Computed example of a mutant assay.
Amino acid sequence: MDTILHPIMWLVAWVMYGIHSGLTALGMSGGAGPAWVLAILGLTITVRLIVLPLYNRQINASRQTQVLQPEIQKIQKKYKGKKDQVSQQRQQEELSALYKKHGTSPFASCAPMIIQMPVLFSLFRVLYAFPQIAAGTWQSASLGPINQEVAEQFQESTVFGAPLSASFSDPGSAHTTTVRVVAAVLVIFMCLSMFYTQKQLTMKNMPESAMDPSNPMFKTQKYMLYGMPLIYLFSGVAFQIGVLVYWVAGNIWNIGQQTWFIRNNPTPGSQAHREREARIRKKRLRQGLSEEQIEELEEQESRGGQREQPMGKARAKKSGQKENALDYVAQAGLDEVEADDDGVDEPGEARGKDGLTDAERARKRYERRQAERARSQAKAQNRQKKAKQNKKQRNF
């Protein structure tokens, strides 16, 4: 194991030593002391900053996978009970095409964890090597910049009286009670913070359509929500105090980072998304915008922020729309509107801040809805044609 991890162990040792040297240059104690604890915290921040782009991809991939769950379930239901090789291959092809279309992958959300695990194992082995390097029993005289003198200084550094290289299961010859109390507190905090981050992703940032109890992904996330903290609750007794400090600091970073992402970029249809929309609506009301202006902005945002272009009669006819003012008014829910063909306003018609009357505003809303329906119908027809063509090709 050490042979495989040795390059990463060497890099971890140099990062910790470099951060410790920087802290001592700023005036902290150069020997045993809190500078080594802060070096572990610095290592945590360094690793988190490196994997930050991957974390963004993980959040986006997880969100896309949650949104796609209804479509994934439709494909799985389509091939339910079909165990032949051709059906299984077609199911995989359709799922792959669906993931490719939306730019995601079922494995993209695992990338940050996969990258961090070697770092965590290497840190575990580096901390495990410190006592042996200090005693002169390590396989070599040093590990990167960590020689016997540096290892002895690290050995004497503590967190609330517990040595960084000690663990709950191996507290060492002295401070047994202190080591086990500190280790137990850190393990419990690590499990609680892990549970909190998983619960945010599972309950607050997941759309209702994906929270079906029969949904396999939702089941898996619920198992992870309760199972992962329990696993680390029992396996954490073997981790050194330094590893627990790294892990707890990483979980605190995750809570802050995840809270920011969920608040500012939540999954559409989730509880966090509804809360964000309510905050934005209140802010716009405080700015003096009317309900109609807010609805206009929300419609633009739902279409991706694109501005709705004015539609002439020729375009309206091509889209299958009818130029009938009474129909526009009926769709908008208005009872009586009087409008002339020459565009002259009837007496008593008031114009809002946008320069439109109620009838003109209702007409524009109706035009947009009709155009959206026409586009949706055209897309559905194209999909049906492509599906028929693909079916014919496969049958051929």
Results as ranks from 00 to 15, higher is better:
Ala325Val: 03
Ile294Gly: 01
Lys353Ala: 15
Glu336Gln: 03
Glu296Tyr: 14
Asp341Ile: 11
Ala332Val: 01
Gln331Phe: 00
Asp327Gln: 04
Pro347Ile: 09
Lys313Tyr: 14
Leu334Gln: 05
Glu346Asn: 06
Gln287Asp: 05
Gly305Gln: 08
Arg307Thr: 13
Tyr328Phe: 09
Glu338Ile: 13
Leu326Ala: 03
Glu323Asp: 05
Asp342Met: 08
Gly343Pro: 01
Glu301Thr: 04
Glu296Phe: 13
Leu334Trp: 14
Gly343Val: 04
Gly343Asn: 02
Gly333Gln: 08
Glu301Leu: 08
Asp335Ala: 05
Pro347Gln: 03
Gln309His: 11
Arg315Val: 13
Leu297Met: 09
Ser302Gly: 05
Val344Ala: 06
Glu296Asn: 09
Val344Cys: 09
Glu349Ser: 06
Leu297Lys: 05
Gln321Gly: 06
Ile294Ser: 01
Lys313Ser: 09
Leu289Trp: 11
Ser290Ile: 15
Ala350Arg: 03
Arg303Ile: 15
Ile294Met: 09
Glu298Gly: 05
Glu338Cys: 07
Val329Arg: 00
Gly288Tyr: 15
Ser319Tyr: 02
Glu298Asn: 06
Arg315Leu: 15
Ser319His: 10
Glu295Lys: 05
Gly304Gln: 05
Ala314Tyr: 09
Asp341Tyr: 09
Glu349Tyr: 14
Leu297Asn: 08
Asp354Cys: 01
Gln293Phe: 15
Gln287Leu: 12
Arg303Thr: 10
Leu289Phe: 12
Pro310Leu: 14
Val337Gly: 00
Gly333Thr: 02
Ser290Glu: 12
Ala316Thr: 07
Gly288Ile: 13
Ala325Gln: 03
Gln293Gly: 12
Glu292Asp: 10
Gly333Met: 10
Glu295His: 11
Glu308Tyr: 13
Glu299Ile: 07
Asp327Thr: 03
Gly348Ile: 10
Ala325Pro: 00
Ala325Ser: 04
Tyr328Glu: 03
Ala325Tyr: 02
Gly352Pro: 02
Glu296His: 07
Ser302Asn: 02
Glu346Asp: 10
Arg307Gln: 15
Gln293Ser: 13
Gly343Glu: 04
Val344Gln: 06
Arg303Asp: 12
Ser319Pro: 01
Ala350Asn: 04
Asn324Phe: 11
Arg303Ser: 08
Gly320Pro: 08
Glu298Pro: 04
Ala332Met: 00
Gly348Tyr: 07
Glu295Cys: 09
Gly343Phe: 07
Ala330Ile: 00
Glu323Asn: 04
Gly305Tyr: 08
Lys353Met: 14
Ala339Met: 10
Gly305Met: 11
Gln300Ser: 13
Pro347Tyr: 10
Asp341Val: 12
Gln293Val: 14
Arg307Phe: 15
Glu346Ile: 05
Glu308Ile: 10
Glu323His: 07
Leu334Pro: 00
Ala330Arg: 00
Asp327Cys: 05
Gly288Thr: 08
